Amino acid sequence: QVNQQQLQQLMDMGFTREHAMEALLNTSTMEQATEYLLTHP
């Protein structure tokens, strides 16, 4: 289960819902999730 607010923040940054969910499931903080998305295009 992912934090919906964090998911929305990542989608607002331009990431897809699927990619943002993957990042949130594989990390524990927003900072890590953002870094994950930038390093796993």
Score class of each variant (00 low, 15 high):
residue 11 M to T: 10
residue 8 Q to V: 05
residue 1 Q to A: 04
residue 18 E to W: 01
residue 37 L to P: 10
residue 14 G to S: 08
residue 8 Q to S: 12
residue 11 M to G: 04
residue 25 L to E: 15
residue 13 M to V: 02
residue 35 E to Y: 08
residue 10 L to T: 02
residue 32 Q to Y: 03
residue 35 E to M: 07
residue 37 L to S: 10
residue 28 S to K: 15
residue 40 H to I: 02
residue 2 V to N: 08
residue 40 H to Q: 15
residue 12 D to Y: 06
residue 12 D to V: 08
residue 33 A to I: 00
residue 4 Q to H: 08
residue 7 L to G: 02
residue 21 M to V: 12
residue 4 Q to D: 13
residue 16 T to C: 13
residue 14 G to A: 02
residue 20 A to K: 01
residue 6 Q to T: 07
residue 35 E to R: 11
residue 5 Q to D: 15
residue 33 A to G: 03
residue 4 Q to P: 03
residue 28 S to Q: 11
residue 19 H to A: 14
residue 19 H to N: 07
residue 16 T to Q: 10
residue 37 L to M: 08
residue 41 P to M: 05
residue 12 D to K: 15
residue 9 Q to V: 04
residue 41 P to D: 00
residue 32 Q to K: 14
residue 17 R to P: 02
residue 1 Q to M: 11
residue 9 Q to A: 10
residue 10 L to R: 01
residue 5 Q to S: 12
residue 27 T to A: 11
residue 13 M to E: 04
residue 18 E to Q: 12
residue 5 Q to N: 12
residue 7 L to A: 07
residue 1 Q to R: 09
residue 17 R to V: 04
residue 14 G to C: 03
residue 36 Y to K: 13
residue 11 M to V: 12
residue 16 T to D: 06
residue 9 Q to E: 13
residue 36 Y to F: 13
residue 31 E to G: 09
residue 30 M to Q: 12
residue 3 N to M: 06
residue 26 N to Y: 04
residue 7 L to M: 13
residue 36 Y to N: 08
residue 10 L to Q: 02
residue 6 Q to F: 06
residue 20 A to Q: 00
residue 4 Q to C: 05
residue 14 G to H: 05
residue 33 A to C: 04
residue 34 T to R: 15
residue 40 H to C: 10
residue 27 T to L: 01
residue 3 N to R: 01
residue 25 L to T: 15
residue 9 Q to M: 04
residue 14 G to W: 00
residue 14 G to I: 00
residue 23 A to K: 04
residue 8 Q to M: 07
residue 12 D to T: 10
residue 23 A to V: 00
residue 1 Q to T: 08
residue 20 A to L: 00
residue 28 S to Y: 05
residue 16 T to V: 10
residue 4 Q to V: 04
residue 35 E to N: 14
residue 33 A to E: 02
residue 10 L to E: 03
residue 20 A to I: 02
residue 20 A to T: 12
